[in-house]
């Protein structure tokens, strides 16, 4: 078992003929993921990945023809909101948006619309989802993780890789790793993923990787205290970040005294979450 994706997930790639889209579509397929379709408006009728994957002009056509049930989005930021809405309207139940730089006002509208439809969005500005040994949807390098019983959820990209790699070095594997993204408004929160891990029989322990900005970690701490029975270990990036400065991610900013790493660490520790001083310490705290 895993969460969100497995071997049976039928993935379509929006923006499959672009440089990033094509590269990562081939990486996903090489990992064993069922990449069943691509969408690029104006390129319908072409075939990619050695002629194995058909390209469609619209998501609706791709879904009708191939039965895709998950979409991963690699289109440029200015087209991302439209791409997400197109997938949702075509009935795709799980949408993973890798694109970075989506305007926050677009995301507020998109999120409201998806909530009304009941569609699950992961991202944007995220590395996607990896179920080691099963499937990957997104850009997380497959070789840095092995199958196991640790559920990983993170707001970051490469920092997540660092933790997966540290786990693997100690022989620990992951059930599923979900990158929820570093934007202020996204589709899936820590709480959403924590509840899925709590319900997943394969997942026995959980790692939560947060960073400065917003209060998602504080709310996760409350949820852990009220609803989680499985042990949770955390790491929060940005203890040395100055206030008022955006640290790369649009959502990673300490504003008006809120979003501080120290407050998040305190909130997590207060509900029994072991918080690592540095990312390579995470496996020790899980042991």
């Amino acid at each position: 078992m895993s969460i969100l994706i497995d071997k049976n997930t039928r993935v379509l790639v929006q923006g499959i003929t672009g440089r990033e889209g094509l590269f990562h579509a081939s990486q996903m397929a090489a990992y064993g993921t069922q990449v069943v379709a691509g969408v690029t408006p104006g390129k319908g009728g072409e075939w990619v990945l050695d002629g194995k994957v058909p390209v469609f002009d619209t998501v609706q056509r791709a879904v009708d023809t191939t039965g895709a049930d998950c979409s991963v989005i690699f289109v440029p930021a200015r087209f991302a909101a439209d791409a997400i809405l197109e997938a949702a309207d075509a009935g795709v139940q799980l949408i993973v948006c890798i694109t970075e730089g989506v305007p926050v006002q677009d995301m507020m509208k998109v999120r409201r619309y998806l909530d009304q439809k009941g569609t699950r969005l992961v991202g944007p500005n995220c590395p996607g989802i990896l179920t080691p040994g099963g499937a990957k949807v997104g850009i997380i390098p497959g070789h840095i993780a092995i199958p196991g019983n640790v559920g990983v959820v993170s707001r970051s990209g490469t920092l997540t890789y660092e933790v997966l790699y540290a786990l693997k070095a100690k022989g620990m594997g992951a059930s599923t790793c979900v990158g929820i993204g570093g934007d202020p408004i996204n589709g899936t929160s820590f709480i959403d993923v924590l509840s899925m891990f709590e319900a997943d029989p394969q997942t026995e322990k959980i790692v939560i990787i947060g960073e400065i900005g917003g209060s998602d970690e504080e709310r996760a701490a409350e949820y852990i205290s009220d609803h989680m029975t499985k042990p949770v270990v955390g790491f929060i990036a940005g203890q040395t970040a100055p206030p008022g400065k955006r640290m790369g991610h649009a959502g990673a900013i300490v504003e008006g005294g809120t979003g501080l790493a120290a407050d998040k660490i305190k909130a997590l520790r207060s509900v029994g979450v072991k918080v690592a001083d540095h990312p390579e310490q995470v496996p020790d705290l899980l042991a």
Binding site: S156, E211, A237, T240, H249
Partner: peptide
């Protein structure tokens, strides 16, 4: 994406979260 701080160890990292974590580990 660059933000100047007041220490003496220059950092070059790929990824925002990892860049922050690297600063934290130095500290």
């Amino acid at each position: 994406s660059y933000v100047r701080l007041d220490g003496n160890i220059g950092c070059m990292v790929n990824g925002a979260g990892l860049a922050m974590a690297t600063m934290d580990v130095i500290k």
